[in-house]
Each structure stands twice: as C-alpha cells, then as structure tokens.
C-alpha cells in the first residue's frame, strides 16, 4: 500500500524532472526526455520494472531523509548564527537504530528479488528454442526445430551515420531481418558468440544476457503483445559495437507460421 503510493510518487517526481528539463532545453531533434525503464511487454520485464520502481521509491525516501537532515543541520547549526558545538561523540541508541533499520529494509528488498530471480532463471517447459549467435558485428538467429536460420544486421545506411543524409526515425535501431516471435509462446534463447563477447538486450522483453564464445547461455521470453521491439548489443565488442541492433517482431501464431513458411522457401 505504502510502497505502491511511493511508487506513484517516484513516477511523478521523475516525470516532473523530465518536464522541467524539457522546459529548459527546447526540443531539438526528437525531444523524448525519457527518464525511466521502457514499457515492459513480458512477465520478466514487468517483474523487473516493478522491482525497479519499488527500490527507486525506497532509495528516494532514504535520500530525502539524508538530505533533509543535512540541510537542516547546515541551516540550523552554523557558527554565523551563534550555534554552540555540542560535545557528544556517540550514541549507542542511534547507532543500533541506523544499523537495524537498514538491515530490515534490505531483507524486505531481498524477498521479492529472490522470487524474481527464480522466475527469470526458470527456462523449463519452453514452447520453442532460438539459438542466438553474436559476431562482429551482427546477430545470427537459428530456429532450431524449424530449420530456419538467418543473419540480422544493421540496416541504417552509412550516409545517415556520417550525416550526409537526414537520420531516420529508427536511426541505428533497424535491421535487415527481424527476429520474428509468436505471441504468448515461451521462447527459450540459447546464446553464444563466434568471436568476442556480446550481450543480447531488448529492454522491453526483459534483461540482457551475455553471448560468450565457447559458452551457451540461456534466457527466456514470452511476449504478451504484438509489435516491434528494439534493442542493442550491450557488451563492448569492438569497433562497431554501437552498430549491432536487435529488432524483435512479435506476431500472432498464424502470421508466425506464414513467416516461417516464407523463410523456408527463401532457402
């Protein structure tokens, strides 16, 4: 109850800061001033989002208390106002309090975090498997049971990067081949890499996971919404690390089957 109210408050504070920023710096290219995590569209991403908002609320309150005490002291206990220094050097009561209360808060945070982690790491009972291979600089996707595989690389033209052409709406976040996923299916990803370490990350689908040569990592995604979702490689992987986006397209099952068929026919 209190937590949810605090969460609303944090949301408001964040948006006010954003609005204030907007007012000071008028729009230039495409004013967005986004200040928070992207809107989640999977269970994992939602759990992460809620956890994030809860912790943000807690730390905002702690920070406000610390700053309040600090500014009160700065205003109240200044020599120029004739403040006389006290002589105390410790207070067992206070010290016990500010050790025990944080401990309780931490326990309160650990419980939902543990639950969330258990959910995220449960890759069992998946409906399908996609193998993701990172390479310098792009992604290779392999629908292992469907005999479909393809490369997916940056589609933004060089001229937009160097500035000789106007940058498009999805500048740097567009690829030649989308990773198409069916709606509502639990997709298990197997991640690996060919050369160096990469990390596969689409914020709206949930967290990132490293794609490491010689290793196979796992994660899972179940999309609750159709649409196009964009992300990027999140582990420094060399010169073109900034140029290996990920685009996921979630469609309903019929469209997915049709897409698979089309892919197979392409060979």
């Amino acid at each position: 109850m209190i937590v949810s109210r605090l969460m609303q408050l944090t949301g408001k504070v964040l948006s006010v800061t954003g609005i204030a920023g907007l007012w000071i710096f008028p729009a230039n290219v495409q004013a967005e001033w986004k200040v928070n995590l992207q809107r989640p569209i999977t269970e994992i991403a939602r759990v992460q989002y809620d956890l994030h908002m809860m912790i943000m609320a807690i730390i905002t309150v702690i920070a406000l208390i610390v700053f309040a005490v600090m500014f009160y002291s700065i205003i109240r206990f200044r020599k120029s106002k004739g403040a006389q220094p006290a002589k105390f050097t410790h207070s067992t009561k206070a010290e016990v309090l500010w050790t025990v209360i944080p401990t309780l808060i931490l326990i309160g945070m650990a419980v939902p975090s543990t639950k969330a982690l258990l959910l995220m790491e449960d890759t069992t009972e998946s409906d399908m498997v996609v193998k993701v291979t990172g390479f310098q600089w792009g992604w290779h996707y392999d629908y292992m049971e469907e005999n479909v595989s393809f490369y997916s690389m940056l589609a933004t033209p060089q001229s937009q990067i160097t500035g000789s052409e106007t940058k498009g709406e999805n500048y740097l976040l567009e690829v030649n081949n989308h990773l198409v996923l069916p709606l509502g299916k639990k997709v298990r990803f197997l991640l690996t890499a060919k050369d160096v370490i990469h990390a596969w990350w689409v914020p709206q689908l949930g967290g990132k996971k490293d794609a490491i040569p010689g290793f196979i990592n796992e994660m899972w995604v179940r999309a609750d919404e159709t649409g196009i979702f964009r992300g990027q490689c999140a582990e420094l992987c060399g010169k073109d690390h900034g140029y290996m986006p990920i685009v996921v397209e979630v469609v309903d099952d019929a469209q997915y089957q049709a897409w698979l068929e089309g892919r197979r026919n392409q060979g």
Binding site: S73, F77, R78, K79, S80, P85
Partner: peptide, 8 residues
C-alpha cells in the same frame, strides 16, 4: 554535523 557550529 548535527548540533555542531559549522562554517563553510
């Protein structure tokens, strides 16, 4: 800082 006599 609390109940001190601060200068800045």
């Amino acid at each position: 800082m609390w109940r001190g006599s601060m200068t800045f």
